[in-house]
Design a protein around this nucleic acid. Structure first.
Length: 567
RNA sequence: GUCUCAGUAGCUCAGCUGGAUAGAGCAACAGCCUUCUAAGCUGUGGGUCGGGGGUUCGAAUCCCUCCUGAGACGCCA
């Protein structure tokens, strides 16, 4: 709709003694569609032009009408309400949506840029819970959105595969575990041992020392410690990959924290060489008091490094070795300060690309209003949630469409889609309270609703084919009824929605858009015959249906959902 | 204590860089399948936009203040 806003602005600007860009920024959508397609409020020109806003609006309306570029331009108080030439706009956007939905959304503003996105990043030997869905799916959606906007995207799974917890894991395993049980159910068994460790430590404090001892051995390369550690990683990854396969999530690199063990000294050396390190309470830190931030600890008082050092090494690796000039971190909001410090230190190290680093924070996932504690063994496994959603989808298919071919696959696509969409539809910074009743409800503003709408559109197109009705590549629109026009307007807004979603790093805006298109199509489907319309109208409506189908497929793709053709 | 984020209908949330009577979904109730998939469509009820100030022609939106909740605040990541 940008081009239409600008067209209005071009004509109105001379009347308002302002530039077209200034005016274009003021053009908005009227609250009620009956008022018009676009509106220009004229209040703020009153002072400069020394006339009433109403009079200014009248002059603007006159100029817009005289230009002949719009269907109507009417005054309503201080507003000018503009109606567009429906057939013209429909010809432009419906045909574009039908032929090339990616171009409908994106102008590929970032051709030539490379972005490394850090997302999902679960901890080894810990469960993959519902909480990990957030980083995983927001990251996956952003990866696709950024790729669509021209970025070369590098997806990185920054696995938590290092730290003192592995000393505890090893100690607990050696005391109470056995190979066979772990092999059968690695993550659940390792968690059980880990939880037991924390329980027993209450009465038996020397266990802590045992854990520390095993981590020291691991650090110094002790064969037994390294063997067990690697084994935990392998077993955990096998399970994680199963979940990623279900979700359809992919990474270019699995690079755990341990990968940077030998890359941190260089960071420390560089910071020291650049005189950024100062001694403080026995530790070495970068002082950030001049930007009102607490110091960033680089070397602990016991001489070892810390996560900030590791993250600096990882950032340098992503830029210098992987060639990324934009670094994106899809990590919980609780690490906000840490990333602010990290980016500030990078800037002080002279890395001008620090300005392109972004922490895409998200709110905590709670369960029945409570925070889950892995350490206490409170976990809702994502694989259990997905399985329940899939069986609910299967149940509904059995009830509504038992003759559907490919039932199992569709149940998977829909059930998993419901879980993903439920997570992506809300603003990422909000905390989400995970509740099965919400996730397993497939009515209303849900993934299955969008998928169902897509399947409906597919069904019409299939039926056309079966009746040997040709669906042309493009149509020439003549008359456009209200319910069609709502769809056309949405297509015309796709680019604005997409760019805002990307600038805000907010997939929920794509999800809302898909819901809007779905609702508009369902209304159209209900109101107007498609196949039953007379030939000229039938042709337009089939192209419109095809456009809806492609726009929904594309939106669902961006969000990481499958688009079954029947359900 | 300081900082950050959030507070909109019974519940879950939209509301774009301030703009016209604050919108959806769920839940409740009432309609719509001899016609392209009813996982749909339509309608009804439901709101002092946390409270109070301020800026403005105009504030859910910006500023101040208070209340509530969450998170962060040096050797976990």
């Amino acid at each position: 709709m940008k081009s239409q806003k600008y067209a209005v602005a071009e004509v109105a600007a001379p009347v308002l003694n302002a530039t077209a860009d200034e005016v274009a920024a003021l053009v908005e959508y009227p609250p009620q569609p009956e008022m018009g397609d676009l509106a220009l409020p004229c209040f703020r020109f009153a002072k400069q032009l020394r006339t009433s806003p109403q009079l200014i609006a009248a002059q603007v309306a006159e100029a817009l009408t005289a230009s002949g570029r719009f269907a109507t331009a009417e005054v309503a108080g201080a507003y000018v309400n503009i109606r567009l030439n429906r057939a013209e706009v429909a010809n432009e956007f419906v045909n574009l949506a039908a032929s090339d939905p990616a171009s409908l959304f994106s102008k590929r503003r970032h051709q030539g840029d490379t972005a490394a996105i850090d997302y999902s990043s679960p901890n080894i030997a810990k469960p993959f819970g519902v909480g990990h869905l957030r980083s995983t799916m927001i990251g996956q959606a952003l990866a696709r959105m950024m790729r669509c906007d021209g970025f070369t995207v590098i997806g990185i799974n920054h696995l938590g595969d290092w730290g003192t917890q592995f000393g505890k894991n090893i100690a607990a395993y050696l005391r109470w575990g056995d190979e066979e049980t772990v092999r059968q159910n690695p993550v659940r068994e390792l968690l059980r041992l880990y939880v037991r460790f924390h329980q027993e430590v209450e009465n038996n404090p020397e266990l802590e020392e045992e854990g520390r001892m095993w981590f020291k051995r691991l650090e110094s390369g002790d064969a037994e410690a390294v063997r067990l550690w690697r084994w935990f990683i392998d077993e955990s990854l096998k399970e994680f990959r199963k979940t990623y396969d279900l979700l359809g999530v992919e990474f270019d690199h699995y690079l755990g924290e341990s990968f940077y063990n030998d890359k941190m000294q260089a960071v420390i050396d560089e910071l020291r060489a650049k005189n950024l390190l100062i001694e403080s309470q026995g530790a070495e830190v970068v002082d950030l008091s001049d930007v009102d931030m607490p110091p960033c600890i680089i070397v602990k008082s016991n001489g070892t490094s810390i996560y900030a050092t590791r993250d600096l090494a990882a950032a340098l690796y992503r830029h210098d070795v992987l060639g990324a000039n934009h670094l994106i971190y899809v990590v919980g909001a609780e690490q906000k300060l840490h990333f602010a410090q990290l980016f500030e230190v990078l800037r002080r190290m002279g890395r001008e690309w620090a300005a392109n680093c972004r922490h895409v924070a998200f709110g905590l996932m709670k369960y029945n209003g409570k925070r889950l504690s892995t350490r206490r063994g409170q976990v809702v496994y994502l694989e259990d949630v997905l399985a329940q959603a899939v069986s609910e989808a299967a149940r509904i298919i059995e009830e509504k469409n038992p003759s559907l071919p490919n039932k199992e696959q569709v149940a998977r696509d829909v059930g998993i889609g419901a879980v993903i969409f439920n997570d992506l539809k809300n603003y990422r910074l909000h905390e989400v309270d995970f509740r099965f009743e919400d996730v397993l409800n497939f009515d209303g503003e849900t993934g299955p609703y969008v998928q169902y709408t897509h399947a409906r559109a597919c069904s019409v197109l299939r039926k056309a084919e079966a009746e040997s009705v040709r669906v042309p590549e493009r149509a020439s629109f003549t008359q456009v009824i209200e319910s069609e026009w709502t769809l056309v307007r949405l297509f015309a807004q796709a680019n604005e929605v997409f760019e805002r979603a990307l600038d805000d790093m907010d997939p929920s805006q794509i999800a809302r858009y898909a819901l809007d298109v779905s609702h508009a199509f369902n209304r159209f489907y209900h109101d107007a015959p498609i196949l039953g319309a007379e030939p000229v109208l039938r042709e337009q409506r089939l192209v419109l249906t095809h456009a809806v189908r492609r726009v929904l497929t594309f939106s669902l793709y961006l969000l990481g959902l499958k688009a079954p053709e029947a359900m």
